[in-house]
Amino acid sequence: MLSLVTLLAISFVAGYGGALLGLGGGILIVPVLTLGFGVPIRVAIGASLVSVVATSAGASAAFVREGFTNIRVAITLEVATVLGSLIGSLITGLISPRAVQLIFGVVLAASALASLRIRHEEGSDVTPDAWSKRLQLGGWYPGKEGRIDYEVTRVPLGMGLMLVAGATSGLLGIGAGALKVAAMDLGMRLPLKVSSATSNFMIGVTAAAGALVYLVRGDVSAIVAGPVAFGVAIGATLGGRALVKADTRRIRKIFVVVLVVISLEMVRRSLLP
């Protein structure tokens, strides 16, 4: 029974830490399960994808209600992320577990370091492109002094980046939220708050596409995925609340150091003879 309690506790910490970093719990779960417990990487990825669906459903509900999520942008980009997720899930079944571990290590280090970057709000000087006009993607979100209107541009660039984000999600079992936010924030010039909320909304469907492949393929183990989804969902909920209330800069830095160490260990193990 110790293993069940340990698994729940570790998943809770992963969900809490992932929420503080804005990376989601999945990015911590896969290395912990593979390096710490010897769980096969495909089983760890399957469990992680299910936990990503749980955290997305919980977090995105509030953003949709408050009006930060742009549902039209989400639906448009989901065509690319879901396609990417399918491709990523298929690749995981074709390449060696060591290759997956190596890619995971590199993506983990990059995501950890990217989470430290200072973000800024976009200005309103965005001219919509033809795609944005045709799909009517512009919108508004609630600000402190009333509604803030915005426009969307470079939709094909966003679609291309979302294909990569989706493939990363399906391949590694993570939400790839950092990539999605960067694609909308820097690529399509959406305001950061809208990018974060819309990314959260999309992560659930992207991860569910990958999770479906793993579930039907038999790579999801109930004894691993059950406790992981439960622990990560509770940890992410509490971590999200802590993020709003407390100054988490110091704890974020500690988590980043931990993530970089874990990523180096994953790369080292993948290269061992």
């Binding site: 749980a54 459903a57 919980g58 995105s60 509900a61 509030a62 949709v64 209600r65 009006g67 742009n70 549902i71 039209r72 919509p128 009517q136 512009g138 919108g139 508004w140 209107d149 426009e151 659930g204 989804a229 439960f230 969902a233």
Partner: peptide
């Protein structure tokens, strides 16, 4: 400048019902 709410009649419905679907599914699953 397009106006999300007023020009898209589906928007208020989705904003109201989607959170219920997501939260409801999560509660049943958990």
């Amino acid at each position: 400048m397009s106006v999300f709410n007023e020009s898209h009649p589906e928007d208020p419905v989705l904003r109201r019902v989607t959170p219920l679907v997501l939260r409801g599914g999560l509660i049943v699953a958990m």
